[in-house]
Design a protein around this nucleic acid. Sequence first.
DNA 1: ATTTGTGAAGCGATTCACAGCC
DNA 2: GGCTGTGAATCGCTTCACAAAT
Lengths: 292, 292
Amino acid sequence: MTAQGADVPEGDGQATARVAASPGTPDANGADVNGAGAIEVPAARERARSIPEAAVARLAVYLRALSSLAEQDITTVSSEELATAAGVNSAKLRKDLSYIGSYGTRGVGYEVEVLIGQIERTLGLTRKHSVAVVGIGNLGHALANYGGFPSRGFPVSALFDLDDDLVGVPVGGIPVSHIDDIVEVCSQREVTIGVIATPTQGAQEVCDRLVAGGVTCILNFAPIVLQVPEHVEVRKVDLAVEMQILSFHVARRQQESAAAAEVDGASDGGPPGGGAGLPGEIDSANRMVERL
Amino acid sequence: MTAQGADVPEGDGQATARVAASPGTPDANGADVNGAGAIEVPAARERARSIPEAAVARLAVYLRALSSLAEQDITTVSSEELATAAGVNSAKLRKDLSYIGSYGTRGVGYEVEVLIGQIERTLGLTRKHSVAVVGIGNLGHALANYGGFPSRGFPVSALFDLDDDLVGVPVGGIPVSHIDDIVEVCSQREVTIGVIATPTQGAQEVCDRLVAGGVTCILNFAPIVLQVPEHVEVRKVDLAVEMQILSFHVARRQQESAAAAEVDGASDGGPPGGGAGLPGEIDSANRMVERL
DNA sequence: ATTTGTGAAGCGATTCACAGCC
DNA sequence: GGCTGTGAATCGCTTCACAAAT
């Protein structure tokens, strides 16, 4: 079923401590803010804080499905249809949409354009987020040239690499800067999202500089757990991990068929294709991401 | 908050159909498989089926941390140490490890090598998984050039593209085949994992061929929900979605500071600029070098 | 007649907290 | 004393099912 374990909370010990420290109150600031002082704080604002992390991830998926519908000049869509397009069930979709407000019409469905607008607003896409890509290797090149970013409000506005031969060379229309200039360039160009596509070794250092340059969101392709201050958000994309998860599912499936086959045959089915292969190492998988 | 890690979007798609089709029964594959027939099914096998999906993803992360420790010739590690390295808390780590067995020593910790071996076994990494990459564009190149791909782990054994100019050209040591030959080549080379790095348009078609070629696991970089048979596992990596999730967090943070600033200022209208002394105030970054 | 929006139930994952072992 | 392994409690997301709306 390929779950979508939303994410792994807490970057470190402090988060743990915080949780432990507040047994009764879920969040410190929320409660009394709108108790008396802040009167007209729009419900929409209040809502944003409470959207489940998992729902946020799906909103982005719905948005893409909706864009696709819009391109086909479809103006209205039911929760059932949209859910199918997004690969979820309709109850979940409706629940997710309910977190951002009530923009559907009962008996009819949702207006595509309206929904697009509302999701974009919720995700903060009405504002452009300058992106910096660090590490212009294979992956960095791919990212710099990736059309998907600019098209949806994520202009890549800075590229960095260690290699002097690369500095100054334009990639995807933007000249590469040296990583020594990360802090300066990022603050100057108001970069809000940093993408780390360097080898593991340099990743933490790069991360620190991005943070120093005012970057508050980081997308990390390096196979390392980055240490960041509390106000910085990190998301990690780890190819090797993805592959290994798939590997697990292959293995499980084989076990299941093996077990099923065992029902009639008493003796162990034996290792057909190599049930007991060698204790191979997986470093290759780890390494491959580093190479990027 | 610094949410670290996070695994990626799901690979649903097929789950939708399944879920929608079974209103009454939560999950089809009930647990009666080993009701009576399978006697001595080792606990280890039985266990695999029941490891929470989220735990599987983390096991892969632990594995990397452990490999790193092994390289430093560290032979023993406590749950606390390993948890820190992996970016989780120690209780979760111990729970996760308990799913695969008891390989620690109370009062001491875990032996690094032992744990590596057990996790590799659990994830099915003792067996090689041939990988095919489809779509040799920017990203495909990056993936194919995981040059390191030594013979262990996840050897890339096939590359495919639509472009005739590319067919026959070796990339990362492997000649590119035409996508018309996916079925033949994949079954011949016993590919188990397919990586889709094509544009959206061709992705479903490519997916169908991979499945026809015997591929049961797919890693999809195309921003589309693939429709696959029930026995095929899909994981999706969507860079745009990742960015949008980060965008949401930026937006939320700004709202929070804005709301906090509003507490003293009674009237609405709330231009964030009102509160001068805000931490990390990021201002409007309109129109910058926008290059598609 | 349809379809949304949502309280409530259900369920899986996380965290707690401590017994058991070194 | 230190650390693992795990039942129990808790939390948060998902699913159900139905009232409300058109």
